[in-house]
Amino acid sequence: MRRSSRTQTCRVADPGDDVNVEHSAASFLDSHADRADAPGPLMALPNTAPSEEAGATPAAELPGQLPRTSAHDVVMHEGSRSARLREIKLLIDGRLRLGLRATFTRYGLRRDLAVPITNPNAKVPISVRPLEPSDLPILLAENNHLEPQERVQIAWRKDFYKKAPEGCWVAVDERSGTPCYMQWLFGASENPLIRTFGGFPRLEPDEALLENAYTPVACRGLGIMSAAMALIAERAAEIGAQKVLTFVGDDNIGSLKGCQRAGFHPDLLNKRVRLLYGTISSDTFETLPADDPRRTLQF
């Protein structure tokens, strides 16, 4: 069933609601492309990490294979008090950056799985599978060389995983078995959970939501986002979905291009208003008219 042309949701954040911070982050640090990719509320703060287009690695410099890392090579210190305090500080900083009022516009992009596409290829061979706990220290590794903004992106996803440990998929470099990309796929049965995130419409029974993508710094510039996103979207059929939605800021051209290569096209327009440092949020969703030229934009 087609959702109404205009729906609106309003949400007051619970104290300490870190997931909602990430959503504020979703438009502010917009997340999709290989720039950190998308908190897509799961996605919402302005992302300054390089997009796949902006940060592409010259072919002569491409690695023979992505770095091989194991959970033993990277210590995340998830249980340490200092690490958790650092994550909380980053999340609070993200909320403060929203100020008293912040507004964002995002495209709701849709892929119809009944319409065949030629899947894009990454510069390294990849396959996708559900995330395993041992993938987290590799995908969300921290070190002293990361920019503060990158640390925010990692902190958001660590926190989001605690709220939604199921439904995350990863892309794996087939040559080494190293995970190189992550993104969550939700079906309509998870509408109650999605509602707690804020920033998304209620899914119809034949719809799925693909959000909160992240590509580790070492794996960017290899076309992984588009290729992985196309493959993960196809897994939505396994949970009864025929259409897949994802949300990207209207000014995040790199991410919009990547999603378009993965078979996604504009279908909705989302207006987001965040008040009082993101503690109050309001979202309006409009279905683009059938003849709206934005439906056929080439980013």
Rank of each mutant, 00 (worst) to 15 (best):
R3G: 03
R3D: 02
Q8S: 12
Q8H: 09
Q8A: 13
A13W: 10
P15Y: 11
G16W: 05
H23K: 10
S24L: 15
A26T: 06
L29E: 10
L29W: 13
S31Q: 13
H32Y: 07
A33F: 06
D34R: 02
D37S: 13
L42P: 05
M43Y: 05
L45R: 10
L45A: 12
P46I: 06
N47K: 05
T48E: 07
A49D: 09
A49Y: 04
P50F: 04
E52N: 12
E52F: 01
A54H: 12
A54C: 06
E61H: 08
P67E: 00
S70V: 02
A71F: 00
H72M: 10
V74F: 11
M76K: 04
G79Q: 12
I88G: 09
I92G: 00
R95G: 00
R95V: 05
L98I: 11
G99R: 04
R101N: 09
R101Q: 09
T103H: 08
T105N: 14
T105H: 14
Y107A: 15
Y107P: 02
G108T: 06
P116R: 06
P120T: 07
S127P: 01
R129N: 02
P133Q: 07
P133W: 07
L139T: 01
L140W: 03
E142Y: 04
N143Q: 02
N143W: 02
N143F: 01
N144P: 00
L146H: 05
P148A: 02
P148N: 00
V152P: 00
R157T: 11
F160A: 14
E166H: 13
G167C: 08
G167P: 04
V170S: 01
V170P: 05
D173T: 00
R175L: 13
S176T: 14
T178I: 03
P179T: 10
C180M: 09
M182C: 10
E190G: 05
L193E: 08
R195N: 12
F197E: 11
G198E: 11
P201R: 06
E204A: 14
P205F: 12
N212K: 07
C219K: 01
G221S: 03
M225D: 04
S226A: 15
A227T: 03
A230V: 05
I232F: 09
E238D: 15
I239E: 05
G240W: 04
Q242W: 00
K243Q: 15
L245R: 10
T246I: 08
T246W: 03
F247P: 05
D250Y: 04
N252R: 03
I253Q: 08
G254M: 10
K257S: 08
H265D: 03
H265K: 11
D267A: 15
N270Q: 15
R272T: 14
R274G: 03
L275K: 08
Y277T: 00
Y277E: 04
T279H: 10
S282F: 01
D283Y: 15
E286T: 10
D292A: 13
P293F: 06
R294F: 02
T296S: 14
F299N: 14
